[in-house]
Design a protein around this nucleic acid. Structure first.
Lengths: 193, 193
DNA sequence: CTCCTAAAGCAAAGATATTGGCTTTAAGAG
DNA sequence: CTCTTAAAGCCAATATCTTTGCTTTAGGAG
């Protein structure tokens, strides 16, 4: 036992990082080329130029691997920061959310979460929903600071704006584009008061 | 070539029907016990007391098998027929839809559809969406015959009623019960005029 | 009742995926 | 620079899934 605190991860640098990046890249590529259900650990390992055993030992299962990649992509592609203008912020968020879902392989991650089971599934989806509600709360808080009153509730926004976007992307409903997303948000706000 | 017309399926009776029923039952049981992603053809065959080869030859893949079972269950558990009272019909439909999705293994079929890829996926989801729009069109038609005017559009109902239900079931949002479903439909209609 | 044959069963071979024991590599501390 | 050891690599064993060729069973027509 040294007197210094142990780092959270024992050996995060160099080779481990390179392997992680190669595996992440391989997952993204395979998801885009084939679908989520054809992503297997041996395939990922081959594409990444890494030994399958390594992937099994570090990540264990495909859903766990996908969850990590999805989390990383969510960090890289964050929604636009709220300005305090609820109407503009919500429209921008809706547009971003749609783009995020509809990006190549975007829905594949959602699928992976939906398909996973029990604890893993609940954890993944809770995290996903938590992320969405966190973003929306940020938008509402900014509007409130800006002096806005009579704000919609989180549940209302989720039911009226977020849910339709998810549904339409999953079912590939035609006409679900950026313009639709913005109008969905704006019409929701206009219909209240 | 006989002069008589050939039947669509060459030998539908007896043993084939028994095997089909046993396999269907096994699929439903396994989906409820484990999740959709742990349903494999060998597992289904064992549970059904049928040879795996038979399942491979008749259905080929797990998604195809799940699609057939889902279609059969949809037939067995049809939504209530429209009465012509839009408000009551839509509330009843929302309640039925939620119950149908939330039933044991209900979402698992949806998951299976979502997880499948390319042609199979598109076919399955289109069928699912077609079913929903068909039911809703029936409700709208009944209301129209009853003299109602200013009816909402199909897209509106899907965005405002159906999509939130799907979203909430998939993400297991608390408080998503029959009462919520009815109120969702009623508040949608009340919010128009 | 008898015959034809679609569909089910069986068994063995061929893929793939997963696990475990052991060796090798290279961060990172001292 | 040297040493320790976490993490990666290798390879063989195991488990699962999937396909294939052939045999057997049992609907259903005549």
């Amino acid at each position: 036992m040294s007197t210094a605190a142990r780092p959270a991860s024992a050996r995060p640098g160099g080779r481990s990082a390179r392997v992680r990046d190669a595996v992440h890249r391989a997952v993204t590529e395979l998801i885009c080329e084939r679908g989520a259900d054809r992503v297997t650990i041996p395939a990922v390992a081959t594409r990444a130029g890494v030994n399958p055993t390594t992937v099994y030992r570090r990540w264990g299962t495909v859903p766990a691997l996908l969850a990590e990649v999805a989390a990383k992509e969510l960090d890289a592609d964050a929604p636009p920061p709220p300005t305090g203008d609820l109407r503009a912020d919500l429209a921008a968020y809706a547009e971003w959310d749609l783009a995020h879902l509809a990006r190549p392989g975007g829905i594949a991650f959602f699928r992976a979460e939906v398909a996973a089971d029990l604890d893993e599934r609940k954890a993944g989806l809770r995290e996903c929903l938590r992320q969405v509600t966190g973003d929306l709360e940020g938008i509402l808080a900014a509007a409130r600071e800006n002096g806005a009153t009579g704000l919609p509730s989180l549940d209302q926004i989720i039911d009226r704006v977020v849910a339709p976007l998810y549904f339409r992307v999953v079912f590939a409903v035609p006409g679900t584009d950026a313009r639709f997303a913005r109008e969905l948000a704006e019409e929701f706000l206009d219909g209240r008061s």
